[in-house]
Structures are given as structure tokens and as C-alpha cells.
Design a binder for these strands. Structure first.
Length: 334
DNA sequence: TAATTATGACGAC
DNA sequence: TCGTCCTAATTAC
């Protein structure tokens, strides 16, 4: 269940483990059988994440476009080289890496000494891993994981090299495209801080927001306005900006809009590197550690309906906006 | 065992 | 605004 940061992480894993190799493709579930057949045997050429979508190029000018939607996920298994640009949030990547677990970077697994004792016997020599590449899920590591990995559940697409497998389940989009179609898909998307020219991106965002009479809370979720922001980052960014979610884009001073972009460009790389939507960097010391300890309550306002605002104590409000839940502090974001 | 929930987006009306 | 699609984990009963 990804926002933009997760998709960039997934793309980096593909870059590290699939690009330059021949793919074997299949659709265990059967719902992408034709596409898998077309992909099968081709070499993976390049991969690019844009917002919440990933584009994988194969030889013969064939692109795979994947959008995970609300609950799609990629599971990686086999021998996986870690992308050096993504690390574990707890700063123990080296250790977890040796154990062959927790590729995703979420800290929950290895933090609890008692819960995970996979490395307690023998040398830390595990090369076979099984990892789900989305936030808040856990990796497993065993010496005797099967190869190829058994299919579990509804796997729309399995991509394999000789040593690595990637299973896609639950995507809202999984389609093959020509180069032109791929470019058209990208053209529909708003700027992504990690794609293209930074100054140009900022201008596009500012222009798109300031010409609209739509609530900023809706604009931040509009993938044509800005790529990669979802319900969590939306709520958190509005709080960080102390911005009322209902203010229309055109009514927000330009420097404030610009600051929103700067904040997204700041938050996204942190999310990519840590695997978490870290938005409470304003906290320090014990406060920060306490907030990070529980994944269900590590945000300023997201998922905190009825709880006191961390700054002013006012109850966080939950309202439905555009069929999504919007969380905000009516006092701090007056 | 069933209902609920989720970090998404689209099309019909 | 509503219904729909995709799946799995969690919670309620």
C-alpha cells in the first residue's frame, strides 16, 4: 500500500536485481497470462518510477506499467542485492542485511529481540530472502526457502531472473505499453521531485495549484498536480504547513505553495531511503523515539482522529473528502 | 466465519 | 456522489 516513496524503492530493487538480465515471466493467477507471455524471455533494459507508477522497459520497445493502487504489492524472493541507497530506518541495515531480512527497511522486525531469532543459530549466512516491498510489512529469512518460491495467493505477475523472483499481487494497473503509450502515461502525471528538473518541477506545481479553485487537500491528492502524494503524506504535509485543508489553491499565497513543494521534495527522499513516511522530524530526543516506536501512531495527524493534537491538544478532526479520510487539527490549521 | 479496513483511481450518473 | 475494481490482514461476532 504505497505512496510515492514505496514505488521508488521498488524501482531501485528492480534496477539492482533485474536490469540487464533476461526475464522469465508468468501469471500464476492467469489474469495477465497474455502479457506475461509477451514479456517472457526478454531482457530488462531500464526501470523508472514516476509518482505511484513504475515503468519497466524490456527489449523490443515493450514497457510494463504497474500501479499498485490501494493494496497492491511486490514481493521479492531469492537472492537479492540490496540497493545501497535505501537503508533501514533503525540504522542497522548492515546487521539485518547479513541476516538477509528486512529489505524493506521497516524496523519492526528486528527491533524486538525475542520475536525474531532467525540468526540465533549458526553463522549469519542467509542469502535466500523473501521480502514484501511495501511499508509496514515484514521480511522473512530462512536457509531452506524453496526455489523457485511457492506461489502464495493471487499473483498477477511473476518476474524471475535465474536467482531472483518478484511477485506482483493486487495491482490496480498492470499493462504493457509501446514507448509512445508509456510517454503519454508519464505526461499525464504531475511533477515528481525525483524525476526531471527540480526548478521546472517546482514551477509546474505552483502553476497547477494556483490556478485551481479546488481545496488544497484535493489538489495534493491529484496525481496530475503532483505525483506520489497519498492520504498520509497529504495530511502530514498540510499540518506541517499549518494549512487549512479547505483553502482553495488559488487563494494560497505563492510562497506558501512553493513551500509545500519544497517540503514534498524534502520528505520524499527520506521516505525512499527509510521506507517510512517520516514526517515528524520536528520532534527531538525522547519525543521522537516515543513517536516512532509505534507504527500506528507515528504521525502528526494521520489516523489520529479524536486524539489530542501533538502541539495544541485540540482533538484531531476526521472528515470525508472526496471519498477519502482527511485528518487535520482545526486549531493549528485554522 | 464474516465484516471491515487500507497509503488509489476510474467511470457512470 | 456513488459504485466498482484489485487483495490480504485485522477485527468483530
Amino acid at each position: 500500500m504505497p505512496e510515492g516513496h514505496s514505488v521508488h524503492r521498488i524501482a531501485r530493487q528492480f534496477d539492482r536485481n533485474f536490469i540487464g538480465k533476461a526475464l522469465s515471466a508468468s501469471s500464476p493467477q492467469g489474469r495477465f497470462a497474455e502479457g506475461a507471455e509477451l514479456l517472457d524471455g526478454r531482457e530488462a533494459i531500464s526501470v523508472q518510477a514516476v509518482g505511484k507508477q513504475m515503468f519497466l522497459e524490456t527489449e523490443g520497445d515493450l514497457w510494463l506499467r504497474v500501479h499498485l493502487g490501494l493494496y497492491g504489492a511486490w514481493d521479492f524472493a531469492g537472492e537479492i542485492l540490496l540497493d545501497p541507497t535505501i537503508a533501514s530506518a533503525n540504522g542497522r541495515m548492515g546487521q539485518t542485511n547479513q541476516r538477509g531480512t528486512d529489505l524493506d527497511g521497516d524496523e519492526s522486525i528486528m527491533d524486538d529481540d525475542g520475536e525474531n531469532s532467525l540468526s540465533s543459530i549458526g553463522a549469519p549466512r542467509r542469502s535466500r530472502v523473501h521480502v514484501r516491498m511495501s511499508e509496514d510489512t515484514r521480511g522473512l529469512a530462512e536457509d531452506d526457502l524453496e526455489w523457485p518460491p511457492p506461489v502464495v495467493g493471487q499473483v498477477r505477475l511473476r518476474l524471475m531472473t535465474d536467482i531472483t523472483a518478484a511477485d506482483l499481487r493486487g495491482p490496480t494497473a498492470c499493462v504493457l505499453q509501446t514507448p509512445d503509450e508509456m510517454l503519454a502515461s508519464v505526461a499525464k502525471l504531475g511533477p515528481d521531485p525525483l524525476v526531471g528538473d527540480p526548478a521546472e518541477n517546482e514551477e509546474r506545481f505552483v502553476r497547477a495549484v494556483r490556478k485551481r479553485g479546488t481545496a488544497i487537500a484535493l489538489l495534493l491528492m491529484d496525481q496530475a498536480v503532483v505525483s506520489g502524494i497519498g492520504n498520509v503524506y497529504r495530511a502530514e504535509m498540510l499540518f506541517r504547513a499549518r494549512l487549512n485543508p479547505h483553502i482553495k489553491g488559488k487563494d494560497i499565497p505563492e510562497d506558501i505553495v512553493r513551500q509545500l513543494w519544497v517540503d514534498w521534495a524534502y520528505l520524499l527522499p527520506i521516505g525512499v531511503e527509510t521506507g517510512q513516511m517520516m514526517t515528524m522530524d520536528g520532534l527531538t530526543g525522547a519525543d521522537y523515539r516515543a513517536a516512532m516506536a509505534r507504527r500506528d501512531d507515528r504521525h502528526w495527524v494521520y489516523h489520529r482522529a479524536g486524539l489530542p493534537c501533538r502541539l495544541c491538544g485540540t482533538e484531531i478532526v476526521l472528515e470525508e473528502l472526496g471519498a477519502r479520510k482527511l485528518y487535520w487539527c482545526p486549531r493549528c490549521q485554522a
